[in-house]
Nucleic acid binder design. Structure first.
Length: 242
DNA sequence: TCATTAAATTGTT
DNA sequence: AACAATTTAATGA
């Protein structure tokens, strides 16, 4: 494991600010303060953005790259909750309660991570209606995502696991920065869903044959998001019975 | 801008 | 896990 925290924080550039979806929802005064206090840092592959148990100091979001949200169970095995593509912000629940982080956030590849200081976060909660709407929407959407994640874990068919995990990553509410092209390598996706790269490659080929996605070099293009969420893949399916 | 080379990613076994 | 094929990125003329 590579160590973390040698990332230098710096003020965000204009093009980085454009990747932060909630800034557009703020009033001018609110946005000015937020922009002034936002910081960004470059994380290398393997770097931790935050760790379980550390007190919350920032509310984080992905500007570019790809992060992984995970935790370790009592046996030390890593459980991956979800990936965080550009436009995704996380930790608002623990930030609101001023608790410690409940999960690890690790960069799957070189990424730019933005952070809003905890005090600024609370100031926005207290002053900005637009910000509150965003946070409420975010909490609600994430609840649905975690429920879906539990279902995904129970499915044995790898094709379906990959399909549902991809649908989660393309979620336009949580990850507005993704669009219809998700920049992710098959190796990275394999880490996220807990399968081998070979098996992910096979699953992606199947999904492409069903015209749900298109496989591109270094990324995936979505063709049918509802289909990814719902359609059963292939003719055989071992997941129907409990 | 083009050609060459290295590196990253993919497809297969 | 290893390998070959393909795509992209980097370099320099």
């Amino acid at each position: 494991m590579k160590s973390a925290l040698h990332q230098r924080r710096r003020p965000p550039a204009e093009e980085e600010l454009r990747e932060i979806p909630w800034l557009a929802l703020l009033q001018t005064k609110e946005r000015e303060r937020a922009v002034n206090e936002l910081r960004v840092s470059d994380a290398l592959a393997g770097d931790y953005v935050c760790r379980v148990g550390r007190p919350v100091t920032y509310w984080f979001g992905t500007v570019s790259g790809l992060l992984k949200m995970s935790t370790d169970d009592e046996d030390g095995k890593t459980i991956t909750f979800t990936g965080v593509p550009p436009g995704g912000w996380f930790g608002e629940g623990t930030a609101l309660k001023r608790e410690a982080y409940r999960y690890n956030i690790q960069a799957l590849r070189a990424s730019v991570v933005a952070g809003l200081p905890l005090e600024t976060f609370h100031w926005l909660v207290d002053h900005s209606l637009g910000f509150n709407r965003y946070i409420m929407n975010q909490l609600n959407e994430r609840l649905g995502q975690f429920i879906a994640a539990r279902e995904i874990d129970r499915m044995s068919n790898p094709d379906i696991r990959v399909a549902r995990s991809l649908a989660a990553l393309f979620n336009p509410v949580l990850f507005s920065g993704v669009g219809d092209l998700l920049r992710i390598t098959q190796q990275e996706l394999a880490y996220l869903v807990g399968l081998s790269r070979q098996r992910v490659n096979e699953a992606l080929t199947h999904l492409q044959a069903q015209e749900l996605i298109r496989v591109e070099y270094g990324g995936l293009r979505i063709l049918d998001l509802p289909g990814l969420r719902t359609r059963m893949v292939g003719l055989r399916n071992k997941d129907n019975q409990a």
